[in-house]
Write a protein that binds this DNA or RNA. Structure first.
Lengths: 123, 123
DNA sequence: TGAACCCCTTACTAAAAGGTAAGTACCGCA
DNA sequence: TGCGGTACTTACCTTTTAGTAAGGGGTTCA
């Protein structure tokens, strides 16, 4: 395997949690799965504009190892695989709520600054 | 500069927030600053076992650009620089609270699994 | 004189993350 | 026969992140 240099000795909970969600698409995957309950591979791919199949598989596998997503394979042809959040995945999503709100507010702030550029608040 | 490929077009708030805290030591820096209020460069370095000066400077600068930390330089000799959280830094820290709790619980779970390996909970 | 401390900066290198493109194996449709 | 769809895997390459090591310009301490 030679993979997974992650999962180092964590210094605190933030460390451990950030490790699990760091990855370009993991936050979005979590969100998609939360919003739709169950998604198939191709559905996730379409829901994540710009993701490559490699990255999607890779992230999904890591999240499965981390106990965040459940992967159900149907022994059919053509193949069918369904992804959904485990209970830990759900609680993680809830824990990410405040962070998402903070980020959204930050985006709003940036927009405001954008609009206000050039205006010197001379007072 | 040729730096900062970050700050890409974010898809959602989680994205925007994770971008700001992703970095090996940023979570810890946030925590240190939150716990102590004001810290000098060398104090932070001592508080983050294993961090290099380069990374510390780099992270601090990025967090300053992101409006999370305040950097106060005293025109003294020897130089003195004090770091503290801005208001956005404080709110970010609060938003990270639930995530930290989730991570801490995850660590506890891992410990339990470690201890419980080999025991089949047969019922 | 020399050493340590202060807060960095720079150059070089290694490792990790991510992107591109192609291949796999089987199906239904035209 | 060829195309598109299913869910991946593999190889190769680039970008990003992190680590190592050294220097710099001034101070106080021994």
């Amino acid at each position: 395997m030679a993979k997974a240099p992650r999962r180092g000795p964590y210094i605190c909970g933030i460390d451990a949690a950030l490790d699990v969600v760091s990855g370009k698409w993991k936050g979005l995957i979590l969100w998609e799965l939360h919003a739709h309950g169950i998604r198939r591979f191709a559905e996730l791919r379409r829901g994540l504009p710009g993701v490559s199949e490699k990255m999607l598989t890779q992230h999904l596998r890591e999240m499965e190892e981390d106990g965040l997503v459940h992967r159900k394979v149907y022994a059919e042809v053509p193949p069918r695989v369904e992804y959904s959040l485990t209970e830990h995945g759900h609680t993680l999503n809830q824990a990410l709520g405040p962070l998402g709100a903070w980020g959204a507010e930050r985006l709003r702030r940036e927009d405001s600054e954008m609009a206000g550029v050039g205006e010197a608040p001379h007072g």
